[in-house]
Write a protein that binds this DNA or RNA. Sequence first.
DNA 1: CCTACCGATCGGTAGG
DNA 2: CCTACCGATCGGTAGG
Lengths: 188, 188
Amino acid sequence: MDRRTQILHTAGRLFSQRGYHATSMRDIARALDLQGGSLYTHIESKEEVLWEIVNRAADRFLAHATSIDPDLPPRERLKALVRGHLTVIAQELEHATVFFHEWKFLSPELQERIKARRDAYEAHFREAIESGVQRGEFKVEDPKIAALFVLSALNWTYQWLRPEGPLDLEALTERYTALVLRALGGEA
Amino acid sequence: MDRRTQILHTAGRLFSQRGYHATSMRDIARALDLQGGSLYTHIESKEEVLWEIVNRAADRFLAHATSIDPDLPPRERLKALVRGHLTVIAQELEHATVFFHEWKFLSPELQERIKARRDAYEAHFREAIESGVQRGEFKVEDPKIAALFVLSALNWTYQWLRPEGPLDLEALTERYTALVLRALGGEA
DNA sequence: CCTACCGATCGGTAGG
DNA sequence: CCTACCGATCGGTAGG
């Protein structure tokens, strides 16, 4: 792991624990046994560090979603989306936390880029639900609200999901998909 | 509205927009046409301001939950809980945002007090679900996960719920309760 | 990668 | 409620 990667990793941990503004560059340096100024050989600015963390987390979420065959039956597609989302959060809890919590501290231009990626991600959920409704697999009055409902239930999990916790990822995925599919009227 | 109330209100707005650490006491003072030092006639410290905002938001959530008759049929009880939660978020969006986002910046002692209140609040949901399962109104494998699922779907709404938005609170409550009850197996 | 520093700003206080 | 200030710390840079 080269220095830059170490810096991003350490920053991700500290940002997720204390927040972006409550973490100083000197905090990051100290955790790596460096002096504050030495970080700038490897990074451009504090904001660049935040951007890398947030954007890489967006990569992870999108990589899962785009790898799902859109021709799958909507029920299977949604199951895969739920599983992928929980997997990213469980495997990348610190970066996911920074992604959800700290993206507002990016510059307006970088915020727009993240919003665009987030919208593209959410569209996968909305489309899976809409196609399920069209095919009669799901029954919901308002697919947009249903998508927000499902994404809300998933996003908040970064607040309480602990990979080392009593519930393993498989078991949680199973229970969450069951709740989601039943909410959408897609399962007995 | 006395000065102290004005300060708490302004701080709530700024904390919700920029976050606690990115808001300076001088920012709050400037918004009220005061000098920074003048705030301290009315407040003790920046942390006290955060505490007041967070704890009052907790008051609002708990006031709704405890006003619900626990002998109601579980379905009705849960409907009321969902309605109450969305009502607080819609009516107190800025304070609710600070409640969810900034409580980690309180001292450990104050964090504990908030956690205790949050746990008490969540217990209302868990108990409503558990009693629904016992009475046969709900069918869920794991009431604890079901409660986390419902609370997650509700909590995240502060991220996208806009009181001035196209969807009014009544309509949103209706759709959310329908999704929640169906997820719990409590409605055809 | 370190030492030493820059200007700016922080939360909070004294004294009026 | 203001002026003026305190010590501390911030992100970042120059020069080696």
